[in-house]
């Protein structure tokens, strides 16, 4: 029983990473109808930026503000820095080609992805980097056979809080209504007096920023980061987005968490070597039987 509970928690933890990244995919798709392939690399960039802040002058930040303070600083730093990169990316790579149709946009996104991956390699080197033990709080909370690490608990709480806030903002506020309206029909939204430019800016800040934050959490949880990690997580989160239903924010959260659980239980009870097979099997099945995802666009339109 305790093993099932542990697997459940592990699945939810990895699912929260997928969910936070999936949110960025989904939001950007909503306003621009673009699968932002660079999103996984923004996630990787986030974990490298958080790492840099934490190891900067021998962990000065953590010494000054304590372990949890240092962690908060790294999270916020990655949040804002990656958010700004996201905005810049939209200006430089997406806006100029937006009018030429969807294919040039996708190609541009792939270009940004390759650029970011190689940028990370050029700046931080091809070697694996590791968040040093001295900057990550590591307590294991054990109740008999049942273990949970402080980091895991923190990640679960923070991601759920973030998702709740986002859910509230998007579903319950006027600004959120404007975001949803833009996602539904850009021209109509413009006619109704919504500043679509501002919404786009906001989305391209928030999506990557959440991804960047997830990157720092991922780095702290697994401690190991590499410049190629973005691709794998990007692909998984993309699957999660499709699973939930693209363009719909609660659906992305659901898709991420669900995917994490499926992976974890599949690996635990069937075979670990087949983990990725489950992920992509789900992608294929969903695309065949429910191309709109579990929570299709209908729910989004109902509001």
């Amino acid at each position: 029983m305790s093993i099932i509970l542990e697997q459940l928690l592990n699945g939810l933890t990895i699912g929260s990473f997928y969910a936070l990244i999936a949110l960025g995919y989904s939001m950007v798709y909503g306003v621009m109808k673009l699968i932002n392939f660079a999103h996984g690399d923004l996630f990787a960039l986030g974990s490298y930026l958080g790492y840099t802040l934490l190891v900067w002058s021998a962990g000065a930040v953590s010494q000054r503000f304590g372990l949890w303070g240092g962690m908060a600083a790294a999270l916020l730093f990655a949040f804002f820095a990656v958010g700004c990169v996201g905005v810049l990316m939209e200006r430089v790579a997406y806006r100029p080609v937006q009018k030429s149709g969807r294919l040039p946009l996708v190609v541009s996104a792939l270009g940004v992805s390759i650029f970011l991956e190689n940028l990370i390699m050029a700046v931080w080197g091809p070697r694996y980097q590791a968040y040093p033990a001295s900057v990550v709080p590591t307590y294991t909370i054990s109740l008999g056979w049942f273990h949970i690490t402080s980091m895991q608990l923190f990640i679960l709480i923070l991601s759920f809080v973030l998702m709740l806030i986002l859910y509230y903002v998007v579903q319950k506020t006027t600004f959120g209504a404007a975001i949803r309206a833009t996602a539904l029909d850009k021209e109509m939204a413009t006619m109704l007096g919504i500043d679509v430019g501002k919404i786009t800016l906001f989305i391209f800040f928030l999506g990557p920023a959440l991804g960047g934050m997830a990157g720092v959490m991922n780095g702290m949880y697994y401690r190991q980061i590499s410049f190629v990690m973005g691709w794998n997580y990007g692909l998984k989160a993309f699957t999660a987005t499709i699973l939930g239903g693209i363009g719909n924010i609660p659906a992305a959260m659901l898709g991420g968490l669900l995917l994490g659980l499926v992976e974890m239980f599949g690996a635990a009870y069937i075979s670990s070597a087949w983990k990725d097979v489950f992920t992509f099997l789900i992608l294929i099945l969903i695309l065949i039987f429910r191309p709109t995802g579990l929570i299709g666009e209908k729910v989004a339109e109902k509001v």
Partner: peptide, 17 residues
Amino acid sequence: YDAITPGEKDFTPILTK
């Protein structure tokens, strides 16, 4: 006697086994 997937980051299921 079993295998993991290279490139993965979370091995808790197989380690539990």
